[in-house]
Design a protein around this nucleic acid. Structure first.
Lengths: 227, 227
DNA sequence: TACAGTTACCGTACGCGTACGAAAATGTCG
DNA sequence: CGACATTTTCGTACGCGTACGGTAACTGTA
């Protein structure tokens, strides 16, 4: 029996309670004070088990990641990389709350390392050096993160207030004459933005990255001609 | 002379003061209370001129954007798109504080619309339809944003505490055996992450996107084979 | 029993963004 | 001179994350 005051809280209980609030009432309702209340404890007591709120969210993500089965993947490296990236995207998109933490680092919960490994592995199988594969992985990750952040944040803003996003009027006004392309689609901007084109874009990005580091290919700083 | 209490504050003065704090002491020091103090005013007085802090930051960005000259660009659409994207990236990377607002929407200050227009225009010149060009632009923007966010946030974390990022120990432990590729570069992870490979990645992404929507090309949902 | 060591908890306090409504300072009108 | 409408400023208050230092509850040892 270890010495010291016996714990009343436990990391597991904290994570479970936090996850429950998250699922039931959304990320806005999850605060350290609220969580402590739920656990009949003081807010600062949580900080003995958790460094900060970000780490708590990360731990919740880890818990989720553990339960995600690893699917069978295509043989072809290029297809495989695309498939994993898409899978990762969709899993994260279902959990809007993580976006706030994801930015903190480029790797996530330990259990989610599988995704990193798969993506780097696919790039290596395709012919990349390990260093190149890491760069490919990071580029894809940056794209996914940027996409998620914009999607989540603007969705959240829409749900809070009914005023449209910041500068839509700016588009309409500024662009006439000066910015012909923008003007020509200004009225359909939101529609075009909402369309989930991420499948196509992700595929194209993967192709572009792998092509640039392809087998029998020296890294090219700029590829000017087409094909 | 309009009726009503004469203003003591002005939007311009607010923006200027905020920008000064930002340049001089960094984003951490810019708070609404501090800013109000600087202007010999009460915090809530600012909110008559500005919707919220995010909008204030956006206005500062707008002020910066006005002063950025529009450079000459390459003729070739593909090169041009890459050049604009790189330029945009570098301009934003110099202003780490904006990252926090950028997420709020996919377009930024009105003056920055020039970038959007240039990128969409280049894609159109390359042979994209307008709709496709918007998708290309957004994909590139997502990548840039994701890259910036990770770069800025992790840099900020490093500067605050000297403890390394979250799960580096997790990499080292978890990955041995299970995740061979990660294990093989675990010790060099930070080094590889820091390397600014964004030029190459951005070029490759642009190429991939334009190829996928290229001239004489039907939009392909998945391109499986190579070349 | 007394005391030290160790672990877990918590009370207080700070600065943050900002919602809300009252108050101040001007114009105009009767 | 009021009375009023209009515009701007501001005092108060809420909930947030969390730094800091104290206290409580247990173990072992003297």
């Amino acid at each position: 029996m270890p010495p010291g005051r016996p714990p009343r809280l436990s990391l597991d209980a904290i994570i479970t309670a936090a996850d429950r609030i998250l699922e039931a009432e959304g990320p806005d309702k999850l605060s350290m004070r609220r969580l402590a209340g739920e656990l009949n404890s003081a807010p600062m007591a949580l900080y003995h088990h958790v460094r900060d709120k970000d780490q708590l969210l990360l731990l919740i993500l880890e818990k989720h990641a553990e339960q995600i089965p690893h699917p069978d993947l295509p043989e072809d490296p290029q297809e495989r990389l695309t498939a994993v990236a898409l899978l990762l995207y969709e899993l994260l998109a279902e959990r809007a709350w993580i976006v706030e933490v994801l930015a903190a680092g480029d790797l996530f919960a330990p259990s989610a390392l599988w995704f990193v490994e798969s993506m780097i592995g696919a790039a290596v199988d395709h012919g990349c050096t390990t260093e190149q594969a890491v760069e490919v992985y990071r580029a894809i990750w940056h794209y996914i993160l940027g996409n998620l952040i914009i999607r989540v944040i603007s969705a959240r803003r829409r749900s809070r207030t009914d005023t449209p996003v910041y500068g839509n009027e700016a588009i309409a006004q500024m662009s006439i004459g000066t910015y012909p392309h923008i003007a020509s689609i200004a009225d359909r901007w939101d529609e075009l933005s909402d369309r989930d084109s991420h499948r196509h874009a992700l595929t194209a990005i993967v192709n572009g990255l792998l092509d640039s580091y392809g087998p029998n290919t020296q890294p090219r700083r700029h590829r000017v001609g087409r094909r």
